[in-house]
Structures are given as C-alpha cells and as structure tokens.
Design a protein around this nucleic acid. Structure first.
Lengths: 157, 157
DNA sequence: CAATACCGGACCAAAAAGGTACGGTATAAG
DNA sequence: CTTATACCGTACCTTTTTGGTCCGGTATTG
C-alpha cells in the first residue's frame, strides 16, 4: 500500500505522452488514444493539470493541450500535487490541530521529516527521466535523493 | 494526499507506547487507554502487529503484548508493512502484469525507483527515534536518506 | 472451573475514488 | 455569422476501500 491514486498514475502517463512532443498541441481525444484511457477520464485529468498550471489549454478547432514547462522542469511531485493535492503522509504531518493526542504525541516532528523525505523522492524524478527508459549504470541504480532537483538530465528530445 | 491509512498511523502510536517500556507486558485494554483509541480498534491493530511478528502476545490473566525487537530495531516501514502490506506506489511498481499499457509504458522502472526511495525514507526512522522528541541540530533537520541503512538493517527476521 | 485476554473472522456503515454525462463557452474556418 | 471543434465546470452515480464493531472460540492462571 501507501499507494497513490490511480488517477495520479494516469496523469503521469498523460504527462509523459505530452512530454514526447513538448511544443505540439494535442487534443484530449488524441491523448486519450495514445495513453489508452477513456476520453472522459482523460479530459478530467487534463483539466486538473491545466488548472495546476502544468499544461496549457487552447480551445477551438486546432486547440488542445501542451506542456507549460520543459520536461526536465516538471517533477513527479508536481503531478501528484496537481491531482491529489499537497502530500501529507499523516494527518498531523502537515497542519497542526485535529489530532486528539496532539499534546502527548511526540512523533509529529518525525512524521514531518518522513513526509519531507518522501516528497524529496518524488521531486527527484522529472518527466524527462520518466520518458527515458532509465539509463542503468550498474545492476541496480538506486535513486539518489537530492533535496533540490538541480541539474538537467539528458533529455532524449 | 499520498497519505497512509489512519489505522497505520494509530499502529505507530501503539508501537511507540509499547516502545516506552520494551520489556513489560501491556494488555490491549491498557494500550487502548494510553493511546486514546477504542479497545476494539486497538485489539484489531495489535492482532495484525502480532501476526507480522513485530510484537508478541501472551494470553491468560497476566497476558498482553510487548515488542519482539528493540525499539531501535523496528522501523516505520515495518509498521506500514504490517498494517497495509508491502509498499507499492503504483500498480506496476511492484508486480508486473495487470497494466493495460504495459508494453508501451517506459515508466515502470522509474516508478520502481521512486518506490524504493520512499521505502528508504520509512526505513530510515526507527521507533526509538519516534519516541524521542527529535534532537534538533539546527533550525531544520532534514531527514537524510541513505539508500541502504548501514547500521540498522530492516531484516524482518 | 471461572476470570482474564488474546484469536479469528464476519459484518456493516461511511467515506473516498473512479468514472460518466451534460449544458456552456471560446476559437477558427468557410 | 454559422458551424464544427474542443476545452470548461460541475453535478452525478457506482464501486471500492476504509474505519470500526461484534461475537463465538481458545489459551492461561489461580
């Protein structure tokens, strides 16, 4: 468990499809086909992604959607935020109050840390990396977690 | 979002309560009171934790529960596993098959990495740390994520 | 044998997630 | 200026998951 919503997963698929041709407009219809999702679901997700300002929308005959930032400037964390809202592993890991044992519970701070670490893991992977089949530099390539995703990985263009 | 179940949160509370006196037996009744949870819910969770071999149970008049390992040998990941089952951020991040776009989707490997990183974050925090109010060595203490925790491996049995 | 306590499920209600539908509005072509 | 395309907003419904409770059974102690 500790899984994220299916729709979030779908959203990342859509985003990677969009990342394949960053500057071209693609209609919801097209994207639905390419991602093997229903048009209705696709539309719903695209709307949410547009509202979160990850993609931009254009109406009209030749309208559609396209990324608003370069694939290496969009992280998985961005997509999760867009669909599920801010990450909060536990009730108390983000906002205070609402927990009945607030006073006696000394674990809040630790949850916050865990939360931050998880977010870091999601921020460490960009769309550009998701589209690339993963360069393997060994048998297993552990995901190194840098608090800030600084450098741009080699986009396959 | 990306939150873990409330019951998992409760379970960690129970575990920290147990960690306060690692060698003493405590009945479900007692634990329920100390954790401010209902007896029914407490029992259910304790049963699951016992089945996962994180705690041991003793029946009879002076029975109860207690930790099966030292507080610094039990991680948050263990508790999550016990209550929610193995961590799997997406459908495809653990087992193969079942995904309709399995073939065309090049993101599986990356999800696996993200999954591993998240698990690492959960494995990096032990019960002992959860009970301690967190030693702060600065303004903010970021949780350093080591892909492989050297000193305290999870090693479930 | 009686009181204490854990064991194993079944069960249910509430909440969340997944998915669909529909009336509305902007754009561009003819 | 009409029409076809395509996004927009939101309401709606169905299914699944989650949270929580209850009960009959078994082991242990005195």
């Amino acid at each position: 468990m500790l899984k994220l919503a299916k729709l979030t997963d779908y959203a990342t698929v859509l985003m990677t499809v969009l990342a394949a041709e960053p500057s071209a407009w693609a209609s919801a219809q097209e994207l639905a086909e390419r991602s093997h999702l229903s048009l209705a679901t696709t539309s719903k997700l695209l709307k949410q992604l547009a509202r979160a300002r990850l993609i931009e929308a254009a109406r009209g005959v030749h309208g559609g959607y396209r990324l608003l930032r370069a694939p290496n400037q969009i992280t998985v964390a961005d997509v999760v935020d867009a669909i599920e809202g801010p990450i909060a592993v536990t009730e108390c890991s983000s906002h205070t109050g609402g927990c009945s044992i607030e006073g006696s519970c000394g674990t809040r701070a630790n949850w916050r840390l865990i939360n931050t670490a998880i977010r870091g893991a999601l921020e460490a992977v960009t769309l550009a990396q998701m589209t690339a089949p993963l360069r393997r530099s060994g048998s297993e390539t552990p995901l190194t977690f840098h608090p800030r995703p600084a450098s741009a990985p080699p986009a396959r263009e």
